[in-house]
Simulated scan of single mutants.
Amino acid sequence: MHRFSRSRSQASTDPARAITPSVILRHSLLELLLTLLLLFGVTTIVRWVVGPSPISSAIPSFEVQLLIVGVAVGVLLCGLIVSPLGRVSGGHINPAITLTMWRFRVFPGVSVVPYILAQLAGSLLGVLAARAVWGPVTDNPPVSDASLSPAPGWSSWAVFPAEAASMAVIVLLVGWFLSVPRLAPLMPAVIGLLVGLGIALLGPITGGCINPARQFGPALVSGHLGFLWVYLLAPMAGALLATALHRRLARQPVLTHRLCGTHADGSPLR
């Protein structure tokens, strides 16, 4: 019995297990749909909490509005990770997380590019869907299709290390939680909390992106491309640095690429 359980665990964490073109396509399409839902939700939240609405009128403080946006987006992201779609694909919804899982050696390299392309496409489609539903108000300030920008006076080279460091903290915590079976089930809530805090605390300063897909669609649709390269590359750089540090210092390997904290077959980590 012990031998069978061990072999099943090893098989379910093997990044090369059952990787076929059809599986890659199916899981990538799920990531596209998850990212579409995230960006549709983000744009909708920004439209009603920051844009002209009874909610924004009742909350004149921009900092309080950002806090509400952060809480709402964190809850939404947590829900997407633990949803049936997220449990199948892994619920990355973030190119930097996909890169992280590959560097942790629990995600197949052949799936990295399809996942990232799907996430970026989902970002664009999610913003376009929100614009179709909510109309021109999403394209005008202060909504601007939920695009991000740093505070006045912040240059690209100041935003880059801040965004990279933020992503690095998230990656280190992901690596720690997903290497300890009793902590792994908490990962969705931790991700939601960290992203929510990032929006609330970093939003007024760097924009609080921490996800290349978060800015890709909004920047393309709104035409605000000035800092796009920073928001695309900084989280990826932070992810690479953090995975290198984790692999050097960690005593236990990461056990799964699924942020819900299970094996590929849905069984809990042991």
Rank of each mutant, 00 (worst) to 15 (best):
A18T: 01
S111E: 13
L202P: 04
T262K: 03
F227R: 11
L39D: 08
G41K: 10
S267E: 14
A151C: 05
L76G: 13
T98A: 13
D139P: 01
I45R: 07
R3N: 05
L85W: 15
V159C: 02
L39Y: 11
W134I: 11
P152I: 11
T138K: 02
A162C: 14
L36E: 09
V73H: 12
P235F: 03
L183D: 02
L148R: 14
L76I: 13
H27K: 15
I93Q: 04
A184M: 02
A164P: 02
P95W: 09
L125F: 14
L201M: 11
P181T: 03
R251H: 04
P253H: 00
A58C: 07
G203D: 10
A250K: 00
W157Q: 10
G223E: 06
V254G: 00
V133E: 07
L117K: 03
G208D: 04
P142K: 04
P60R: 01
T256P: 08
A219W: 06
G207P: 04
V230M: 06
F62N: 02
M187P: 14
P84H: 14
G153N: 13
T13H: 00
D265I: 03
L228D: 12
S89R: 01
F40C: 08
R251E: 04
L37D: 13
G109S: 08
V50I: 15
F62Q: 07
S12K: 01
S9Y: 00
V42Q: 12
A168F: 04
G198D: 14
V49C: 09
G90V: 02
V230P: 12
T35M: 05
R17L: 06
P235E: 05
V71T: 02
Q252Y: 05
F216P: 08
G126S: 12
T243I: 05
R214M: 09
I97H: 10
P152N: 14
C260R: 11
L67F: 13
L99T: 08
S89A: 02
L128A: 08
Q10E: 14
P15S: 01
L201E: 06
T100F: 02
R270G: 09
V49D: 10
S12I: 00
P268T: 10
V159H: 01
S9E: 10
L37R: 06
G51A: 09
I59N: 13
T256R: 01
S53R: 10
G122F: 08
W134K: 09
L66F: 13
V49P: 12
L67E: 13
V49G: 09
S111W: 06
L259N: 12
P181L: 04
I19Y: 00
D145H: 15
L32N: 05
P21N: 03
L128Y: 04
I93H: 02
S22A: 09
R47Q: 15
V254F: 03
L194G: 05
A213L: 08
P152W: 10
S56K: 13
G122W: 11
M187I: 07
P150V: 07
L29M: 11
C260P: 01
A165E: 02
Q215L: 12
V23N: 03
V88S: 15
L197G: 15
V42I: 15
A165T: 12
L66W: 11
D265M: 05
V42L: 15
W176C: 10
S61D: 15
P181R: 01
L172P: 02
R26A: 13
H2N: 09
V69R: 09
A130V: 04
F160T: 08
P253N: 00
I81T: 14
V49I: 15
S267L: 11
G207S: 08
F62T: 12
H246S: 10
M101T: 04
L77A: 14
